[in-house]
């Protein structure tokens, strides 16, 4: 039996998101608990990415996107103008669905965040941050001899792990991962899952995944989205063993989606 923590880290109430006239999320009420992994599942286009992009206000950069409703982090409303998105995003790291390393060296990719936030006083400290971040992302052994090569020269899966290293380099409180393992082989996937297990001791993790088995393996809580609505959210055990909703049941058993 997994320990379920009850402290709520992120809470969205009546969250609605529109892209222009099109509504992508419809009254989503979801609580994400501190120091555990929450998995978001659902068919393609149901709004999972849209949801996690609300949490670090990444939807701000899309001109046509409008977000209404409340998003609270540690009880503080963040869906309002006065919030400083820079310090918010420092606390809430994100790994995107498509790997997007900077066209800079591997080292610079990881050191960029710590650098702009002044997390390392000197080069030695920075080297240390880069090394531990890459190690945590299970990439260190593959790149330790070529830290000066461009990050874009890595393979797709390596690039994704580089992006994970980049996200954890600034020690965020929450890590949002949008299908982080979709381009990874089983070994790398296992390493990332191990990493999540490790990270959840101190961080809150939200992961979007299309792999039911991965959701079962890594998450303590699972939310099922369908057509912009949150259909059901509960402990992973409950969702996968005995869901309340018929649609959830159909989806996890592969009968639709």
């Amino acid at each position: 039996m997994v320990m379920i923590n009850n402290k709520v880290k992120i809470k969205t109430t009546n969250l609605n998101v529109y892209y222009g006239d099109k509504q992508a999320l419809n009254d989503v009420n979801l609580e994400i608990h501190s120091k555990e992994v929450t998995a978001l599942i659902g068919p393609s286009g149901c709004g999972k990415s849209t949801y996690i992009r609300c949490i670090n206000r990444m939807n701000d950069v899309i001109d046509i996107c409008r977000v209404t409703g409340s998003i609270e982090i540690d009880g503080n409303e963040i869906n309002k103008k006065e919030i400083d998105v820079v310090s918010l995003r420092e606390k809430i790291g994100m790994v995107f669905q498509k790997p997007n390393p900077f066209p800079k060296s591997i080292y610079d990719n990881v050191s960029y965040g710590p650098n702009i936030h002044g997390l390392a006083e000197n080069k030695v400290k920075m080297d240390e941050i880069v090394e531990t971040s890459l190690k945590k992302a299970a990439l260190w052994n593959e790149v330790k001899d070529r830290l000066n090569e461009p990050g874009t020269s890595l393979s797709g899966g390596q690039q994704q792990r580089l992006c994970i290293a980049r996200a954890i380099s600034v020690n965020p409180e929450v890590i949002l991962m949008d299908e982080p393992c979709s381009a990874l082989d089983p070994i790398a996937t296992a390493k990332i899952e191990e990493l999540m297990d490790e990270l959840k001791k101190s961080y809150t993790i939200v992961i979007v995944t299309h792999s039911m088995s991965q959701a079962v393996r890594v998450s303590q809580r699972t939310g099922f989205f369908h057509l912009g609505k949150l259909i059901e959210v509960d402990t992973t055990e409950k969702i996968f063993k005995n869901p309340n909703n018929k649609m959830t049941q159909d989806y996890i058993t592969g009968r639709f989606g």
Binding site: N56, V61, R89, F96, N100, F102, Y112, I116
Partner: peptide
């Protein structure tokens, strides 16, 4: 995606 990558680490 490059801009988003930078923004996401708090730039």
């Amino acid at each position: 995606s490059i801009r988003e990558g930078a923004l996401a680490v708090g730039a």
